Structures are given as C-alpha cells and as structure tokens.
Amino acid sequence: MGGGVEATVMNHYRHIDRDKVQFDFIVQDDSTVVPVDEIESLGGRVFTIPSYKQLPLYIKECEKLFRKLHPVIVHSHMNALSVFPLGAAKRAGVPVRIAHSHSTSNPREYAKTAVKMCLRPFSRVYPTHYAACSHYTAQWLFGSQLDKAGKVKIIRNAIEPETFHFNAAVRAAKRSELGIGDNQLLIGQVGRMCFQKNQLFTLDVFKQVLERRPDAILALAGDGDMMDEVRKRIHELGIERSVKVLGIRKDMNQLCQAFDVLALPSTYEGLSVVAVEAQTAGLPILASTNVSKETDVIPGLIQFIPLKNKAQWINAMVSAPVAEQHQDTHNLIRQAGYDITNSAQQLSGWYQKLFSEVQN
C-alpha cells in the first residue's frame, strides 16, 4: 500500500461508520507501507497472501481465504486484474463481488498493456457490481454502454478538504523545513516512482528549466521500483543540488501549500488523488493530456500539455509564479463531491443496500 488507490481506500475506511460496515484487507506479500497498526486499531484485519505474480498460488490462497471468512462483499481494487480475486470469490460462494476501475493503460507499457487488453473482455464475467473513480476509467474497463446505463457506481477519490485549506503560515514553515527561499520556484511531483508517473520526463524538462531559472528546486515525493533509475538520472543530468528526493510522505496537505506548481506528466492516469489534493490547496497543476479531463475539478488550475511538446512544459514551469497565497478552493472541492465524510457515508449506504438485498 502507499499509492493513490490505497490512499483512497484508507481515506474511506477512516471515515466510514465502522459500527455498520467493517473492512478486512487482503494485501500481497510484496506490498509496501501497509498501515497494519492503524487498520487493526480501527477494528479491521489484514491478511497477507502471495503476490499475483505467483498467479496460481495467489488464486488458490484467495479462494481459501474467502471460504474461511465467508464475506458478504468482496470489493477488488485491482483494475483489470480483478478477474482473479473475483473469480476466486465466486467459486467460494461470495454473493456480492465488486470490480473497481481506478486507471487505464498506456501502449508504451507493452507487457502490462498486453495483459490488460487480454483481461478486459473478462472484466464483466465475475463481478455482480461495478465501481470506478471516474466515468473515463469506468468506460475504459467495463465499456461505455455499462457506464452510460448507470450501472457503474462512481466513487470519487475523496479527501478531507479542510486539511488542505491554504494557510500561509503552513507554507512558510514547510518551505523553511525544505530549505526553500521565499522567492525560489518550487516544483513538486508526487507519486510512485514508476513508468506511469513519468518522473524521468520531469527530470529531463527540469534540467532545461534550470538554464533559465537556476535557483529553481524540484521536489519528488514517493517511492517505487524506479527509484534507483530516478536517482541515476539525477546524477547523469548533474542536478543533484536542485532536486530533493523526499521519499514517501504523510504531509501532502502541507507539501501542496509549499509547492508553487505540481507536475503531473503521467503516461496514463484515471482520476489522480494527488491532483484533487493539489486543487483543494489552490495549487496550479501542469498535467499531461493523458490525464483524465475529469481531473479538472477547479477551472483554471490545471493546464493540460502533450508529453511530446517538451518546450511547452519547459515554458510553463519557467513562467510559474512564486505566489505567497494560493486560491481558496477547498469549499469548491467539497461542493464537487470530493468530501470524504460524504463519500464514505454514501459508500456505507451502498454496502448496506447490497447486504440487505442478499439477506432478502
């Protein structure tokens, strides 16, 4: 755990009425940053099984666990891979099986895309119900007909808007902690170090930004399989003094206030949790055109730029203003349906309705 999907699940779990709905979590043995202590303190349980990379064993252990626990609902957040746990859930007699789509794919990830494309036709075989973070991701996995018929439950990547409410004192304190001057440009990127999030692209662009704004700083928050490659690229470009690799952070609400602009050059993306958080803090975003347009919640804060146009990315970063005050947008995010309290209440209601239908 530790990525956007995991953050969304945990946000809902923290705010759901746990006297009415309780979660058990199935995590894979290669998962990182699993908040076991927090989950157990909230009454949940964590079960660890082999990674889906050991597919026969993964499926066997899923089915074995479902037969042991007898859950009424299994809610899978594995996108196209949900076919495997939900297939096991059906064989184990689980009555309600939810497939949840969080992202799409990118043709340049040849192996992953090939697997996803092979599995997409099976996305409607085992689920009894469907969910997605946006209409874009719903239509990608389940097809436009199912989404347009209203058969996909849209569950927003909701957050706590009040914790992202811009505060000038928080901005000053966090920038001081990071060693950033009042007039220095601070570009941020947040996400798992992987091909999808495209940190290598950001580094190449930032190298050229430094030629025009030599005091600019790039802060990268996150971890992942490509961390070593990211550090190597920083060294090759000779920009070690201008790049801060922050690792996994738990202070996104404060970082969003410290940044002057957020880079989101994803090679593919559903509805980015980080983008919602950034907009809640009034932070301007530079996003690739591969990011879902549904991410544009607050008009005027996101600029969509093609990845093939590096010059435009460079110019946009160079011209980003260092502003002491971000827009006050947290109430607009709440009105747009991204308040976690309301979202968790709606999710609880949906679960209870599904449970009731099974009992009757």
Rank of each mutant, 00 (worst) to 15 (best):
G4C: 07
F122I: 11
D260H: 03
I155M: 13
G2I: 03
S51E: 10
K250T: 15
L57D: 14
Q145H: 06
T280I: 13
V230F: 02
F25K: 01
V205L: 05
H70K: 15
E160G: 01
D339E: 12
D215K: 08
L262S: 10
F122H: 13
C118N: 15
V230E: 04
H15N: 13
S41V: 07
I180Y: 07
E40R: 07
S176L: 14
M252S: 11
L301M: 01
T202I: 07
L119K: 11
M226E: 09
K174Q: 06
V27A: 08
T341H: 15
A80N: 13
L255S: 01
L186S: 10
V115W: 07
D328H: 08
E6W: 08
P85F: 06
L210S: 06
P56T: 04
R120G: 14
A88Q: 03
L332A: 14
M193A: 12
G222F: 10
N342S: 13
A132Q: 00
Q145L: 03
T48Q: 00
A316L: 04
I98L: 10
D228I: 11
P284M: 07
V5P: 00
D30C: 07
G93N: 11
H12F: 15
H70W: 13
F66W: 07
L81T: 09
C118S: 15
A287P: 14
E162M: 10
Q28A: 11
Y13L: 11
A7S: 08
K310Y: 05
